[in-house]
Simulated scan of single mutants.
Amino acid sequence: MAINKIQFDIQVQFPHPRRWLLAGILPIVRRDRVVPRIDGVPLTDLIDRFELDAGMQPAGGAYGGLIPAYSQSLRMDDHFHGRSTMATGSKTPVLVCECGEWGCWPLLAEITVTDDLVIWDCSEQPGRRTRDYGAFGPFRFDRNQYDDAVRDLSRPISSDIA
């Protein structure tokens, strides 16, 4: 059983064109996106490649990182341990639509936490129930490495969530 390595990239993004911001037309609102990276590859790239290789239509390019600021009750440590306020049944969004809305085109995974491992499995795209994501994953992470990555993620963005 292979053990994967996870990290979380924080991509700083401003939702409005820079020229509007410079002209003072719109307030500057920073919306950080969180993109999981598995074994050095962004999850957005992994799922795009999987969907394209599987011949899914539409495929690829629709996923973006999670924007924690869109949910004031969201805590990253709870979310990535499968205890999210944004969960759908037993599954947790690990990516959402590139538009940033949590209910728009999410990639869900069942997150199982044990003493030694964190496992992402049973991925699904609720907008396309007939798609088979059975071969996507499972991803198995060492619990200590995973907890460190989530802890590192929680520090820089925790002040942006209010």
Rank of each mutant, 00 (worst) to 15 (best):
T44W: 00
F50L: 07
T85S: 13
G24C: 05
Q7S: 14
T112A: 09
L21W: 05
G24A: 07
V34T: 04
G127H: 12
R140Y: 00
I10A: 00
G89A: 09
C122L: 04
G64M: 05
R37A: 03
C99F: 08
E101K: 13
V35L: 12
D45S: 12
G64A: 10
D132Y: 02
I3Q: 03
P36S: 01
G103W: 09
G65F: 06
W105E: 08
T114I: 12
T114L: 06
G103C: 10
Q11S: 03
I67W: 08
V35I: 15
C104S: 11
F80C: 06
G100S: 07
L108N: 00
D121E: 12
D115S: 14
E101D: 14
I47N: 07
V35A: 04
D142A: 12
Y63N: 04
A162V: 11
D48I: 03
R140V: 04
G89H: 10
F141N: 02
P42Y: 01
C97E: 01
W120V: 05
W102R: 02
R18G: 00
I6G: 06
D48K: 14
L108E: 05
R31M: 14
W120D: 00
F139G: 09
T130L: 08
G60L: 06
L108V: 01
G103Q: 13
I10G: 01
R31G: 03
W120I: 04
A2P: 15
Q11G: 00
M76H: 02
T92S: 09
P106H: 06
V34Y: 03
R140D: 00
K5A: 11
S84R: 05
I157H: 02
R75N: 14
M76R: 07
A87Y: 05
I10S: 08
G64N: 10
H16S: 03
V96R: 12
A59D: 08
Q11T: 12
E51R: 03
D48W: 05
G24M: 09
L107E: 04
T92R: 10
W20N: 14
R83I: 02
P27R: 09
Q57T: 11
L107A: 01
T92M: 07
S71E: 11
A62R: 14
L22G: 00
H16K: 13
P42R: 11
R151M: 07
R33W: 08
E110V: 04
V118M: 09
A2W: 01
I161S: 05
R128Q: 12
V35N: 07
E98Q: 13
V150N: 03
M1N: 07
I67G: 03
A54G: 01
E51W: 01
R131T: 01
G127L: 04
I161C: 10
G65V: 08
A23C: 05
S71D: 13
I6S: 09
P106F: 01
E110N: 11
R37L: 04
D148N: 11
V94I: 15
D9N: 14
R131Y: 08
F8M: 11
P42S: 01
Y63R: 15
D152G: 07
R37T: 09
C104E: 06
